[in-house]
Design a protein around this nucleic acid. Structure first.
Lengths: 140, 140
DNA sequence: GTAACTGCAAAATATTTGCATCCTT
DNA sequence: AAGGATGCAAATATTTTGCAGTTAC
């Protein structure tokens, strides 16, 4: 894990620091997407609030993570797939938000349906957010 | 317009007040979705910030408008269609955000493609946010 | 007249910025 | 050693809450 994380940082020409390693590890360990508050909680106040803001921003800029739009307006982030280059996200995958446990999943293996747009509209990116009940919560 | 607006408010059992009428009119007049800041600008500081927050919240609760998740994390709102009941939104339509002019459109006439979810996942609502270039900005 | 709504003040929360210090390379 | 990253302080911005006065019904 240490290696993957350090590798990722180096590939993006970022200094390998404690906070960046830890925060990136959280994303690798988490099955769902993380919000700023989640990281604060996970790190146990280990890092400054500001450092978390700046780290997340840097990661987004470098294409390591991407932000997920959610209807409840909390910003969540998740790891990008390998084909995300700096400034060019190709995260046309589907996000599923569970109404019960609040977990946000990236459904990488679900393909995005093609959308028919009105004449003159050009699509660059498509985000699909499905909300409902996830596999775990449905079995309780 | 006055009538439509007042009718809508009455149907939702809300008092017909100046701020509610005006704010609801903005939505009817606007071709795109509106953010809190847009309404503040449109109203020219006519209403208190707090009133706008509360009005938007009330409208969402009553199913008059719905919030649109956007990747840039600004909360936008748009009118619900008639089949939205209190607490039950059926806004499975597509939102298009223009990267150039920033306008958010509700593409009512585009049907949402069906999404294949992993086993055990149950979908309640599907939001599709397409970003790109709208018809107007593409012709400049 | 009464319940609901608004505006003001202020609290709570979230985000950004500047700068001195520390750490990675 | 040098540039970048962090932490702290503080400035801004955003959202929420309480309450008194006002308005719709």
């Amino acid at each position: 894990m240490q290696n993957i994380v350090a590798e990722t940082l180096k590939r993006s020409q970022l200094s390998v620091t404690d906070s960046r390693k830890k925060i990136l590890e959280y994303f690798h360990h988490s099955k769902g997407a993380l919000a700023h508050a989640d990281i604060e909680r996970l790190s146990g106040e280990q890092f400054d609030r500001v450092t978390i803001y700046r780290t997340l921003q840097t990661f987004v800029e470098k294409g390591i993570i991407h932000s997920i739009p959610t209807s409840d307006n909390s910003i969540r982030y998740a790891l990008c797939k390998d084909d995300c280059a700096e400034g060019h996200h190709h995260d046309n995958h589907i996000h599923f938000v569970c109404d019960v446990c609040g977990t946000t999943f990236c459904l990488d293996h679900v393909t995005i349906p093609n959308v028919q747009l009105p004449a003159g509209f050009k699509s660059k990116q498509t985000d699909v957010i499905v909300s409902g009940i996830c596999g775990k919560c449905g079995n309780i």
